[in-house]
Amino acid sequence: MYRTFPPASPYTSRVTAPLPDSTVRHLYVHVPFCPSICPYCDFHVLTRRAGLVERYLEGIEAEAARLSGEYPVDLDTVYLGGGTPSFLRDAELEALVGSIHRHLGWGRVENTLEVNPGTVSRERAAHWRGLGLGRASVGVQSLDDATLLFLGRQHDAAQAREAVTTLLGAGFRVSGDLITAVPGQPLEADVRGLVDLGVGHVSAYTLTIEPGTEFARRGVTVEEDDEREGFERTEALLTALGFTRYEVSNYARPGEESRHNLAYWHNRLYLGLGPGAAGHFPATGDGLLSRRWTNPHLHDWLAGEKPEVQDVDPAEFVTDALFMGLRLREGVDLADLSRRAGLDVRAAYAGPIAANVRRGLLTLEGGRLRATPQGWWSLNRVITDFLEESPAASTTSSRQ
């Protein structure tokens, strides 16, 4: 998630105040433990070993206490991600939630738990609801046993169906993850089957082979034509079933959008808690708007190694906001972004805006910049144009 942005902008000197709202309202907590490591996964995850979870929970307590004294926090959303947070034992998850409550509070609007289907039971779902978790993001990935076997998942289709049904019965708002463009996958059956279970939200990602993963070592490949077909067919199927594609990879029934993830896509401030977690924090002075940092992986985090930190000036804030905001169907309100960043975005980036409108990758209507369907597919190219337009100076990257 951590990215290096282009050099700072001469607009920096104009900014002497922090962002209009410097209160942090969103919290991401990374739980790095998984029952097994999937062959396509390149996240910071590991299997549990004796004493390691206990040390992790002690680290969470200490980090939460430190962050509470450094930043103004009034949480709307909490997201427990991983890894597999639902893999934690009941007492362990209770301790984790307790640390958050003690030092940072709890989300008033939405609190999400990422769930592996194999960890769900009626009793556990009721326990999670009792802890104040109301939304579950379930790693279904497919409802076809052959596809799940290829993906290295430890659950079968029946377990996935039962997990979703159990969570809905316990009162959770449920989102189901799907992986598309898998060789031989019955995509229509996967999509229809998940929707028929009653989920209100679907996150659909094309299978991507990342360097260093087991799939990469095996030489597994995904053809671009297959990736694009999965990308387009998923939208057609879910739209026909009453879902709206509100972000490149995310679909929802009305009111079921992920409030937490919308904070990322709107480039809001958020805390990152735990090993490998990234955060976007308020900063003042020297023309800065905010800071981004990424915690080290578990063993270095436990040893007290400091996070990798990047100061964010107005130009970097704008390119980051465009990178994230153009993923949304609603796009980016340029007047609002200009107000938040302290520079005239439409004037500063007139060149790449005009060029990508001509190419049919962006539209600009009423001051709102949006990606077209082709622009969504080519978003990296679009953002590269904005990065290259950014004026050159120097950036700050350090360990603090």
Rank of each mutant, 00 (worst) to 15 (best):
M1D: 11
Y2K: 06
P10F: 12
T16E: 11
P18N: 11
T23H: 05
S36G: 12
H44G: 12
L57C: 04
G59C: 01
A62M: 09
A64N: 04
R66L: 12
L75R: 09
T77P: 02
V78K: 00
L80E: 00
G83C: 11
L88N: 07
L88S: 09
E92R: 13
G105F: 02
T119K: 01
W128F: 10
L131Q: 05
A136C: 03
V138M: 06
V138G: 05
D145Q: 12
Q159G: 12
I179N: 04
T180V: 15
P183M: 10
Q185I: 03
R192D: 13
G193K: 07
A204L: 05
A204K: 01
T206S: 15
E210R: 10
R217A: 13
V220C: 05
T221K: 14
E223I: 03
E229Y: 13
R233W: 04
E235A: 15
S249F: 11
E256W: 13
R259P: 02
A263F: 02
Y264S: 06
N267E: 12
R268V: 03
L269A: 09
G276C: 04
A277G: 03
P282L: 09
R292S: 12
H299Y: 13
D311Y: 07
V312P: 01
T319E: 12
D320S: 10
M324C: 12
G325W: 08
R329C: 02
D336S: 14
D344F: 07
N356Q: 14
T372K: 11
T372R: 10
S378Q: 13
D385V: 10
A393D: 15
T396N: 10
